[in-house]
Structures are given as C-alpha cells and as structure tokens.
C-alpha cells in the first residue's frame, strides 16, 4: 500500500475543501444555524428530568458536533461520485496504486476535513456552557476520530455503490439523518418510547454522541450520565462500539472498492 498515494489523496481533499469557500461556510454554517435555531427554539420548553441545570443549548451541542462530522464526512466522500463522472477517479484506478490505498486516501481526506471543522466548532463550547479546561480531550478526540472514520468510510461505500449525487442525497435523507436524529443528539433515550429507545441503543452514532457528551462534560459527566446519556454505559463500551463501527465501515468500503465493474 502506497503511503505517498494516501497522503496525496488526503492533501487533494484538503486543498479542494479550503479552495471552495462555499463548502467551508456551508459545512460550518449549517450546523451552527441548527444549533442556534433549534437549541434556542426549544430552550424554554425542554427539560431533562433530574438534570434541571442542563439547558437545551447545552444538551444539543454534542449532537451538533456529531452533525458537523456527519455532514463533512458525507459531503467529502460524495466527491467520489463527482470524480467518477468527471474522470478523475478512473485516472486513480488505472495507476498502480492499490485499492485499499485509494479507500484510505479518500476516507482519511474526509476524516481530516471533518476533524478540522469539528475542532473549529469545539471552540464554541464555552457558549454552550462547557469549560474547555474541563473537557476530557482524549475521549473527545477519540470519539471524533472514530466517528469521522466510520462516517467517511460509510460515505465512501455509498458513493462507490451509487451512480448519482441525487441517489446519494436520498440515501442520506432516509438513512443517515434519521440515524443522527436517533442518536440522542436531539433528545435523551430516557423518556423516549420503548421502540425509539431500543433503536437508539442499536444506533452506532448514538455512542458517538454519548462519548462526545462524556468528553465535553469531563469529570462532571458521571453525575448526570443517567439523565442525558445511556444508563449502564461506559467510555470503553462507547469507544469499542465506535471502533467496531469504524472498522466495519472501512471494511465495507474496501470490499466494494475491490470489485471491478
């Protein structure tokens, strides 16, 4: 596997991203608007039983970071479809670069952009009531990294499989957005209908949001974990599920990419 090829594909995605101002603005602006509008709109009516200090703007914030990663990973890997239509992908495929290197290059490109954006968004954490000094950074970074690897790989697999960006948007609307909504980003599993709560427990993105929440609260998390997160969860469980999600999605992407038409 060629590390130079991986590096150059990552660099390409970064260059392309930062040269398209509309993408930078859109990728940061959309979650920001979501956070401010939905967070502000529900601030007066949303109460978490047993956690009266947690306002909705604060509750919603980890979910919005997950949304930043989701949008960025997905839209970055959607370029696989555009690359195929524009001919660039074929030029990569005829090179003596291995298919796993192509998957890693594109996926890590998405990861790099998602991490940059998520870290920029994390700078707003004090506005949500989180103290940057109290943030458990290893957990937060691990959650961001694993989530972005998983979603970029999943995005790559979808883009490899689909022929059109329209089809990609449809899949995103019916699969990925509902996954995010059912991740605990918008409402906690406690109090949700039994079916919804069960779906949330099966949703790997829910463990991403839970781990991000855990990281952002830092030492204060155990006191409110039962109200805002999964009961009987742990850092190890959340990161293990995320790691399995990332490896599974990466394996799926590699498997699809290995097939010739």
């Amino acid at each position: 596997m060629s590390s130079a090829a991986i590096r150059v594909l990552v660099r390409r995605d970064l260059l392309r991203f930062f040269r398209q101002r509309s993408r930078v603005v859109g990728a940061l602006g959309q979650p920001l608007i979501f956070w401010l509008v939905i967070g502000g709109g529900l601030a007066g009516s949303f109460r978490i039983p047993g956690a009266a200090d947690v306002g909705y703007v604060q509750y919603f914030y980890p979910g919005v970071i997950a949304l930043v990663v989701l949008f960025t990973s997905i839209f970055t890997t959607m370029s696989v479809i555009e690359d195929r239509q524009g001919g660039f992908l074929q030029a990569v495929l005829v090179a003596p670069t291995s298919r796993p290197a192509i998957v890693l290059g594109k996926t890590l490109g998405g990861v790099a952009i998602a991490l940059v954006q998520a870290l920029i968004f994390l700078a707003l954490a004090p506005l949500a009531g989180f103290s940057l000094g109290a943030v458990d950074w290893p957990i937060t970074i691990a959650a961001l990294l694993l989530t972005s690897v998983a979603l970029s790989s999943l995005g790559f697999a979808l883009a490899w499989w689909l022929n059109s960006t329209q089809g990609y948007h449809v899949v995103m609307s019916v699969l990925l957005i509902p996954m995010w909504v059912l991740s605990g980003a918008m409402f906690p599993p406690q109090g949700a209908h039994g079916v919804i709560a069960a779906l949330m427990r099966c949703n790997p993105i829910a463990y991403s949001v839970a781990a991000l929440r855990r990281g952002l609260y830092g030492p204060a998390y155990p006191a409110i974990s039962a109200q805002v997160g999964f009961s009987h969860s742990s850092t190890a469980l959340e990161l293990t599920i995320l790691a399995a999600f990332a490896l599974g999605a990466l394996a799926l992407a590699a498997r699809l990419c290995a097939k010739r038409t």
Binding site: S2, A4, A5, R7, V8, R12, L15, R16, R19, Q20, G86, G87, F88, Q90, A91, V92, A95, P96, T97
Partner: peptide, 20 residues
C-alpha cells in the same frame, strides 16, 4: 481526468505520487 480545483503543478504532483 484532471482536478480543476488544483493547479497544473499540483495535478502533476498528484500524478507522480500515484505512480510512486
């Protein structure tokens, strides 16, 4: 099969890396 967002030189650098 070039990347329009990259410069001519960057496209060549990319091509060179893909061929090791």
């Amino acid at each position: 099969s070039l990347d329009g967002k990259l410069t001519g030189r960057e496209n060549l650098e990319l091509g060179a890396a893909l061929y090791g």
